[in-house]
Design a protein around this nucleic acid. Structure first.
Lengths: 339, 339
DNA sequence: ATACAAAATGTAATCGATTACAATACTAGT
DNA sequence: ACTAGTATTGTAATCGATTACATTTTGTAT
């Protein structure tokens, strides 16, 4: 292992000078710089990052906690985060929470142990009080998710209004019996999308039937199973709004399994606009989140927090967009089993 | 920031003793241990990981380089890696190479800088000589990919034989004009799957028409575009073998776009068995890789390398499986445009 | 009570860089 | 030639833990 003293010896200077050359401090004479660089080259010297980090007490690493890495929506956000991170000399440490609160908490400890300079959470099932406290001392940004009443900087879309927009699209097509397959209701995200749905229904004077609101977990399987439940009702909904695309696709598969078709018999709308939603048949009508942009913005905020720059505001809402494809259609009959 | 000396002072012992308590060395009297633990509790002391790592010259972090994080196949491998990593007290640092060789090289430097104790590569476009040299000094494991003539430990399936198996499935169904959409040929993986395809064709006395072998890049888009090329031929293939599922799905979409159907007009077989391949319609016939197991095994090997345990062998081949679903069918006519 | 071994604890060096402060070399102005 | 001021370089403290080695305490056998 080549150390800085080895370089110093070879170049016939002090370690301080070598260090100054490495960090481009600009105070080293050109000749000396050249001698040092030559020695570094010759010895193939690589500075020991741990030592540097200890001295500077910084890691140049940020931690990103994803609820579920197999969901492609998050990989797009990640891409956005990574782009800005690399540009600014940060490494990205990825934590997959496996949809599991304990794992999520575990990652917080990594931040606490100063293994990372900051953290971006794409999930927020963690105890609010705990997170709020940590965020007071350490740089934390929430992306996609947010936390009620907390001052933690957040980047997301307005889930309530976009959810309302999706529901209104169905209502606008004449649907009245609309089923809602929600995300897990222990996360704000899940609750917000439900809230948006309910708002839209109420505002158009439509009843919210408890049987037509089911709690899923954002997985394909839950979408499939809950749709099966809807289909077992005497009066199944004529349209279904799933709180994410994976569940929407699951729902469509269930409908098809029952020999019915989308959108002819039942309309389905999703949320997120993951890649597969445009490939799947019928192509999914959905709400597009600017995933990449969310990632970028979140990372930008985090860098500001790390550098202790002040933020002009701490809630960033980006624009979503309703993407109309093939999975929704005008409602022709108020029941899907006409006699 | 609470330091170990603070704890030592409070517990009225030396820092050495505190350290011994923390590391469970077992040589500290029970009373003292309790006093120290109490102080740690009271002060809410968190050891500084950087200092420890510097002293011990280990990071308890391993680096995983993925060619493309948006491909769900890799997230499954990652899950396998992570499971074993966490179990053994390792953190996983994820590098997304964005299908880009330079990015890939960049991650090697992280290992070199000792920011990680070892590395698992799920891609290997890097210069062979360079990688081989690094692997001599530092723990490196290849997963999914491998490198010809190198001694780097590897976990994968036998891509040649599984590819042959896939091609033979089509041949067994009577297909003779079979198109092959390969992966990038600058990676062994891509070349191997092509090799398997060619072997199967030759062994059954079928000609390999250059026009029917096209190089893709594992993306949905390339599958779509290259299939369009096939369809523009005077005699398009009656079956297509795509070197991964994403391209296979792209190919199917192209076929449908042309008003033809799968498998009635053209059979399509994929590779990887990603989740969507069973959901997509027609459900994809494909080769299943034991992605999770590959990840686990790779991490196990890496841990052995890090601990300088000896490996019994350094090429691990896991079992693949041909999964027959709906996208392939008996060949009825040797041309898809019968006069 | 004594001697010796084993157990427990302490002291201080160490990991490898960065950086505050000190010292020296150089420049220009008189 | 002398001096103030700047540019360059060096010395040594420092980050916060771990650990080799030294020392003290405890336990046991005689």
């Amino acid at each position: 292992m080549i150390r800085i003293v080895d370089v110093a010896k070879m170049a016939n200077v002090s370690t301080a000078t070598v260090s100054r050359v490495i960090t481009n401090s600009g105070t080293v004479k050109r000749e000396t710089t050249e001698r040092v660089l030559e020695a570094i080259e010759l010895l193939n010297y690589q500075p020991n990052v741990l030592a540097r980090q200890l001295r500077r007490s910084e890691t140049n690493t940020i931690l990103v906690v994803v609820p579920d890495i197999t969901n492609t929506f998050f990989s797009k956000v990640l891409r956005g985060i990574e782009a800005v991170a690399i540009e600014n000399g940060y490494q990205v440490l990825l934590g997959d929470a496996l949809n599991n609160v304990e794992r999520e908490n575990g990652y917080i400890n990594i931040l606490r142990q100063k293994k990372a300079d900051g953290m971006i959470l794409l999930t927020a099932r963690i105890d609010e009080g705990l997170l709020d406290e940590i965020a007071k001392e350490l740089p934390v940004v929430l992306a996609c998710e947010y936390m009620e009443g907390s001052q933690i900087p957040t980047v997301s879309i307005d889930n309530i209004s976009s959810s309302r927009k999706a529901a209104e699209h169905l209502i606008g097509l004449g649907h009245q019996r609309i089923g809602f397959i929600s995300g897990p209701l222990n996360v704000v995200l899940g609750r917000d999308r439900l809230k948006g749905f309910k708002q839209a229904m109420s505002q158009h004077g439509l009843p919210i039937e408890p049987l037509l609101v089911q709690e899923g977990d954002f997985s394909y399987e839950s979408g499939y199973n809950l749709m099966m439940k809807f289909l077992a009702l005497e009066h199944p909904p004529t349209a279904v709004f799933a709180a994410n695309d994976e569940m929407a696709i699951g729902a469509i598969k269930a409908i098809k399994f029952r020999g019915l078709s989308v959108p002819e018999n039942i309309s389905v709308i999703g949320f997120d606009n993951i890649k597969i939603s445009s490939i799947f048949e019928p192509a999914l009508t959905t709400i597009a989140q600017p995933a990449y942009d969310i990632g970028q913005k979140a990372m930008e905020l985090l860098i500001k927090l790390i550098n202790k720059d002040s933020l002009t505001k701490n809630q960033y809402m980006l624009e979503d967009e309703l993407i109309i494809r093939e999975s929704c259609k005008k409602c022709l009959h108020q029941t899907i089993f006409p006699k």
